[in-house]
């Protein structure tokens, strides 16, 4: 079942995606199908089963509080779309 269009529009907005009406329709259909597929899991009885916090059966992975070399400023800014001085330059954004 296709997702309601306003849901798709909202999620697209949150992901900063600008979708055409046709894309919205297609996305609503595809997302609906995906959700339906995943929804099969609802058939499982999970009473008394601990929620899973992580897919790996692994806990308490730490590193020591020790300095490691950082990138040079030039290396750090090498991929910046725009640079001013030693800063990334981005279009003025209002909070």
């Amino acid at each position: 079942m296709a997702l309601p269009l306003e849901h798709v529009r909202w999620v697209a907005h949150l992901a900063r995606l600008d979708l055409t009406p046709a894309e919205l329709e297609a996305m609503a259909r595809d997302l609906g199908a995906i959700i339906e597929y995943v929804n099969q899991l609802q058939a499982l009885h999970t009473d008394g089963v601990e929620p899973l916090a992580h897919a790996l059966d692994l806990q308490n992975v730490f590193r020591a509080d020790e300095l490691a070399p950082s990138l040079t400023v030039d290396a750090a800014l090498a991929n910046a779309p725009a640079r001013r001085g030693d800063f990334y330059a981005v279009p003025a954004v209002l909070d």
Binding site: R63, D65, E66, L67, A68, P69, S70, L71, T72, V73, A76, L77, G85, D86, F87, Y88
Partner: peptide, 23 residues
């Protein structure tokens, strides 16, 4: 701490801009 939460970059205050960063 000496270093950041998830990497070994310094947390020191007042370092030159973008001099304590990594991937």
């Amino acid at each position: 701490t000496r270093t950041k939460l998830f990497c070994g970059c310094s947390t020191k205050f007042g370092l030159p801009p973008n001099s304590a960063t990594c991937p």
